[in-house]
């Protein structure tokens, strides 16, 4: 009989891990709390830097899961340590004995309303990056006006923000803002688009080219300065205050739409999951790996592995590569090599 491995979380990390385990000859059991696979990526429209369709990425991952046991709409009741492995009790009543568990529990988007000064949930035309993707996917959103003349993006909402309790850079928001700014400019060529940033952290393949495109070909304005407060005008537009730090002058602008780049924060549900099997958290709230350099997919506990953003913000290609790496670590472990 093939060895069972429980993979918790059916986002791209869990899917790729399960697919890799499958091709290594194991019997992965993929457990997903929601009613669909794909996690955050499934609610995205197109992905940087090649504007790949998110649905296609999910579809190709799904195709590779043929033969894996997938439980949707299923949570974890508890995980108990046994002498030689773990007993994982699922909320659907299924009890699994497994020598290895992979946590692919992902992240949460920062709750934008907590940055009260930006007025998310209060002003009529303030949305988040994820609301915008939903709109790109064809979802209705009355907050997006029919013909906006000016649109703003606020980078680092809840990221690199000690006061919000998150010191980490969310890594993907700078490039996401640029991607979304370009997409909006394509839809509304007459609109002026402003990105308010602290630093632009564009580290990935082709990201800088994307930025140059946004500047040169789309005329998107980049203003170095964090938005300090947002107000609503009598006509319902929002007015944004920031400092143009390169000019050393305060700047204000009225906008028809303001997009908040909500950052990546740790998944708070990890706490319940790790009740019986204590797993340490890092200062940033994410799961602590055995080693941040050479053992990112290894937990400090024998038989428990990590894949994807449960250990910190990551891009899709990084997550996929890490998922494969986690599968190989599980393989080595089950073969008695680690």
């Amino acid at each position: 009989m093939k060895e069972s491995v429980v993979v918790i979380g059916g986002g791209v990390a869990g899917m790729e891990t399960a697919a890799s385990l499958l091709s290594l000859g194991y019997a992965p059991i993929l457990v997903e709390q929601s009613d669909h696979l794909g996690g955050h990526v499934a609610s995205w429209h197109r992905l940087f830097p090649d504007m790949t369709s998110a649905d296609e990425v999910i579809a190709s991952l799904k195709a590779r899961l043929e033969g894996a046991s997938v439980f949707l709409g299923t949570g974890i009741q508890f995980v108990n340590r046994l002498k030689d492995g773990y007993n994982v009790m699922l909320t659907n009543g299924v009890s699994v004995l497994a020598k290895a568990i992979v946590l692919a529990t992902g992240f949460r988007l920062f709750e934008a309303r907590r940055k009260e000064e930006y007025g998310y949930g209060i002003y009529d035309h303030v949305i988040t990056n994820s609301d915008l993707e939903n709109w790109f996917r064809g979802g209705d959103d009355l907050r997006v006006p029919a013909e906006p003349a000016a649109i703003g993006f606020v980078h680092c909402v809840g990221s690199r923000d000690v006061k919000a309790g998150n010191t980490q850079c969310s890594k993907v928001c700078c490039i996401t803002a640029i991607k979304q700014a370009i997409e909006l400019k394509e839809k509304f060529p007459g609109a002026e688009i402003y990105c308010f940033y602290m630093d632009l952290r564009l580290f990935g393949k082709k990201y800088e080219d994307f930025y140059i495109n946004a500047q040169r070909d789309y005329g998107i304005h980049f203003i170095r300065g964090r938005v300090s407060e947002v107000g609503e005008r009598i006509d319902g537009r929002v007015i944004v205050k920031a400092e143009d730090t390169l000019a050393g002058k305060p700047v204000k602008v009225s906008l028809d739409l303001l997009v908040l780049m909500s950052g990546i924060v740790c998944n708070p549900e990890i706490a319940a999951l790790t009740k019986n099997v204590t797993l340490e958290r890092d200062e940033d709230g994410f799961l602590r790996s055995r080693d941040n350099l050479s053992g990112i997919t290894l937990s400090p506990r024998k038989g428990i592995f990590y894949a994807g953003t449960c250990t910190g913000p990551k891009t899709v290609p990084e997550t996929l590569a890490e998922a494969r790496s986690a599968a190989l670590c599980v393989h080595d472990f089950l073969q008695g090599r680690a």
């Binding site: 209060i122 002003y123 609503e232």
Partner: peptide, 10 residues
């Protein structure tokens, strides 16, 4: 302006 949003903050 969404009044309920303010109530949530309050």
């Amino acid at each position: 302006m969404i009044y309920q949003g303010k109530q949530k903050i309050w």
